[in-house]
Simulated scan of single mutants.
Amino acid sequence: MRLLHRRGGGEVKRRILYVIGSLNVGGAERHLAQVAARLKARGWEPEVFAMSPRGPLAGFLEDANVPIHGTELPNWLSTALPNERLKARLNLVLTAIVLVLTMWWRRPHAVHFFLPAAYIVGGLASAFAFVPARIMSRRSLNNYQRSHPLFARIEHRLHPRMTLVCGNSEAVVRQLQDEGIDRSKLRLIYNGIETIPYERPFDIEQARKAMGIASDTTVFVIVANLIPYKGHSDLITAFSLIKPKLTRPWVLFCLGRDDGIAGELQLQINAAGLGENIRLLGARSDVPDFLRMADVGILCSHEEGFSNAVLESMAAGLPMVVTNVGGNAEAVVDNLTGYVVPPHNAALLGEALLRMAENPSRAKMGEAGRLRARQLFSMESCVDRYEAMYREVGADQQVH
């Protein structure tokens, strides 16, 4: 793959190297993979350096002809090291060295860091490689810094070295400004979503029948990995509070990878007598089907950047019940496309869910959300903004 494209009488630099922690299925990882694939189709040369290079999204990027770089400890060395802490440190050092070499070898015009670990390792590594432009994207609120103060100190040292810093919601951008980054260096790029999966013909009744759901059942859905801050425990408590008041049969589908709390959540579900109503389905590749068979979408996080899951649920025509964290209230308009409630409050969350379940106009709210998602949060407009940002830092400039 060549570093330069020809245009007119000169050549154009278009190589962007993304740095991210892994290629597992998560909101930031999926977003990066989709953006990189779209940029590739538009004639850019995106490449990805993943600190853990293999993962479910690696195949998607390879199918889009986006090169993947990275390294891991050889199996023989990993097996020979019984100390996990030592193994992690050696892997981190090896990753940093290989990343520096990759920057020298690939000569990108811009390096773009996604998520804190990649920012810290990549930001430090970029000091040893000539990179014309450095961009950091933060995709969540900085609550993680409270439990990792060293991360905060390193990030604050790296901020002045960045050419631009990007947030995916106004809430994130405000926090970045509070950390001392000049507003002139800050950019806002909302997440973008693919709407095509929600526009194809779909037999809702058949899909529900396959899941053993009667036609008069109210179907709730939450798409979020099983992590404490996603608020699943609050959600179970909320449903336990309103169960006696729900007038129709109901079911809640919980879609998302188990990060270690599924057992605790299942115990809570069983203790609340909700075993017939709440299903933990794990990570799924058919999320659009579940969204389209549902009646109400939920995201009850304690913290958030700007959730793709909310946008995808809106694109599927679902009225939303979300907590007022991060960019949730920027996506969902309270009382128009859904209900926005405070986080950490199972009682108010339950009231909103009950109100939505009994709301005869909820389909109109869902349709308003669908229109909003298409107009403001399409993947096309998102990638347009990425292109504008890369051109701003000098990519796509003609070289004679």
Rank of each mutant, 00 (worst) to 15 (best):
G394R: 04
A171L: 11
I154A: 07
K243Y: 07
E330R: 10
D178S: 15
D63T: 09
E312R: 00
M320F: 10
D178W: 14
R106G: 04
G282W: 14
I135F: 07
T71A: 11
A395I: 03
W250G: 01
A127Q: 06
D295K: 05
F114P: 04
L164M: 15
L376R: 11
T95F: 10
R183I: 14
P82V: 04
R208V: 04
P116K: 00
I189G: 06
E304T: 08
A316C: 06
A347S: 14
N225D: 10
C300T: 01
A28R: 05
E387G: 04
E194Y: 09
P74T: 06
F113D: 00
G122S: 02
L376G: 01
L336V: 13
K209R: 10
E11V: 13
L101K: 09
A127W: 14
I236D: 00
R138P: 04
I236E: 00
A352H: 01
V333P: 13
F220L: 09
R385D: 06
T337I: 08
D182V: 13
L280Q: 07
W76Q: 10
A117F: 10
I68A: 13
N324P: 14
F128A: 08
E194R: 03
V287T: 03
D286N: 05
S52Q: 14
A395H: 05
A388V: 13
G350C: 02
R370A: 02
P53Y: 05
I97P: 13
W250Y: 06
L124I: 11
V131D: 12
K87H: 04
Y18F: 15
H232G: 06
P244N: 10
V111N: 11
M103I: 07
L81F: 10
G59P: 08
G192W: 03
N83R: 11
G43C: 10
S169V: 08
R292V: 04
I196G: 01
V287K: 02
R138I: 09
A36I: 02
E45I: 05
E47R: 09
W76A: 14
G21C: 15
I269G: 01
N225I: 03
I242W: 03
P160H: 02
V333G: 14
V333N: 12
I97S: 12
Q145Y: 15
G212I: 06
I181K: 08
V341T: 06
M51F: 04
L73V: 02
R15Q: 11
A133H: 09
L188I: 09
H109D: 12
A224L: 12
S22D: 15
L99M: 09
E367I: 08
V322D: 11
A368P: 08
W105E: 08
L17C: 08
Q175V: 09
I242C: 06
R106I: 03
V66D: 03
M320L: 15
G317I: 01
L77I: 07
E72P: 08
T71V: 15
V325Q: 11
S240I: 02
G192A: 03
